[in-house]
Structures are given as structure tokens and as C-alpha cells.
Computed example of a mutant assay.
Amino acid sequence: MAVTASLVKELRELTGAGMLDCKKALEATDGDVKAAQDWLREKGIASAQKKQGRIAAEGLSSVVVDGNRAVVVELNSETDFVAKNEMFLELVKTVGNSIVEQNPADLDAALALEVNGKTLGDSVVDATATIGEKITLRRFTVVEKQDDEQFGSYVHMGGKISALVVVKGGDAELAKDMAMQVASMNPQYTSREDVPQDVIDHERGIQIEIVNNDPSLASKPEKVIAGIIEGRISKSLQDISLLDQIFFKDGSSKVSQILKAANASVVTFVRFAVGEGIEKREENFAEEVAKAAQI
């Protein structure tokens, strides 16, 4: 029986296996979809589908720079152990290199990129089947710079946090320092002027509530209370604004002062912390061991 594209698509939807693996399975079973499912199971490939419901909140992030283009990527796994697996590490490199070279528009386009005869999506599914954990390409950000600008990058703890900064002026050391600042201090915005008004209003509401519930401030004049509130808002904005943060290397100067001294400025930055924003499943280790003993 001829192996058609529709058969490959059907088998892929049933098993979650890669397109090339589905084609091989159908060829090996003369186009019999049911037998092809068994073939994939026997090869350990179809098991990838069963892992799609699991939570993948571990893994690695990475920065790849290629000329005036760079990318920050995050590839997730279920456990931290897999993040040290050679196949996983190689997949992180492949994903980063492919994206920075081909510059896909979004995640779907990235997963459709052809690399070594298969798509990145198929490579991720294959890794899931081979490694035995759910693997996902969660996100990426491509950044372009001008010829008179430079990239600074920093990867912390082997990829648990990755930071990329575009700096105009200064030198390579300053650019890397800015990336380290972003990685360690986690600013949300470049400057205080970039903070949206709704974020400021939200912070003001929090500080007003705190002050109203502080009995030690009950007898203070309204002008004093207003000053306290604005002072706390200012401190909060300092914490989330890169230029207002204290420079991590000396503990006293503001980042804006360091940049001014070098006649430099930060154009943009990206920071990925692996698993941020993902609700991790809480596991009871003793219960897991007990369950395993019953299998």
C-alpha cells in the first residue's frame, strides 16, 4: 500500500511522533496505521504523545549571537536531570542556531524550520520519546542591532537564567556588565519613563493600603503620608528600572551613572529565567516512592 501524506498526518496525530518516524513506521507496516502505531510503540517513539500532559518547567535557556542578530531561547523539560542530558544540550544548540540563522516570525514558524531533514518540532518530539520526558520549546526572542551597537550576553548557572543586552557606546566589558546586571537584578523596564501608568497606579494602590493599615502612621499629617507613599513608589520603580538600579559591581553607583561615564546607553534587553510563570506541580516524594514500589 502506498504511504500517502494523509496517512502520515493521521499517524502523527494519533501518536505525536515525528513525520519522518511516522513515514518509516507506515513503510515498515505496508501502510497499516494500527500496525504502525504498534511499530512506533515498540521503538519507544509513540510514548511521546503520552507525555504531552505533563508539566515541563525545568530545562535551559541560551543566547546565540550571529553578527547583528541574536536570540534568547528557552527549552523546557520535566526535571533538572534532563537538562544535563547530552541529547537535550545538543537540541538547545540546534534550536538556538536554527532560529538565529532563519529568523522565524513566531513559535509555530520556529517549530516548522527544517534542520537536517526534519523540522525542529519533530526534533523536539523525537527528544521527548528518546529521553522519556516531555520536552517543549517554550519561547524565544530575536534581537537585531545596528553596526554601531554591540551585544552583551550572560548565561547564569549553565542556562537557568540568560540575559541579552544591546548597548550603544562603551565597550564589550560594559555590555557584558549590563547583561550581568539584567540577569542578577531582574529589571522589568529600561528606565522609569518606560513603566506603564497602570503599573504605577497599581503600586500606588498597594502603598496606600499599607499606609492605611499601619497604626504608627495614623497621627501623621496628610502631607507627610503623601510623601511616604510617593517615596515608597519611587523605591519600587528604582527596583524594576534598569537605569535606576544600583550597579551590582560597586553597590553604590546607579546603572545610569556607569553608562554616562562610558558615554553609553542601553537600547534594549531580554531576560529569560527558566520556568518563570509556569505553575509547577508540587510532588510528595515519599508518595512517589511508594507508588513506584507498587508498580
Rank of each mutant, 00 (worst) to 15 (best):
K43N: 11
I45H: 09
A46Q: 03
A48Y: 07
K51E: 03
Q52G: 04
A57M: 10
E58I: 04
G59M: 02
L60W: 07
S61V: 03
V64Y: 14
V64L: 13
D66V: 01
N68H: 11
V73W: 00
L75E: 06
S77M: 10
E78H: 07
E78A: 04
E78W: 08
T79D: 10
F81R: 10
V82S: 04
K84V: 06
N85Q: 04
N85Y: 06
E90H: 08
V92P: 03
K93D: 15
K93W: 12
T94F: 09
V95T: 04
G96M: 07
S98F: 04
E101I: 11
A105P: 08
A105Q: 14
L107I: 13
D108Q: 14
A112D: 12
V115C: 02
V115R: 04
V115L: 06
G117I: 02
G117T: 10
K118W: 05
K118H: 03
T119L: 03
L120I: 14
L120A: 11
G121A: 09
G121R: 01
D122F: 01
S123M: 12
D126M: 05
D126V: 00
D126N: 14
A127D: 08
T128D: 03
A129V: 01
I131Q: 09
K134Q: 12
K134V: 03
T136K: 10
L137A: 08
R138Q: 09
R138M: 08
R139P: 02
T141V: 14
V143Y: 06
E144K: 13
K145L: 07
Q146W: 00
Q146S: 14
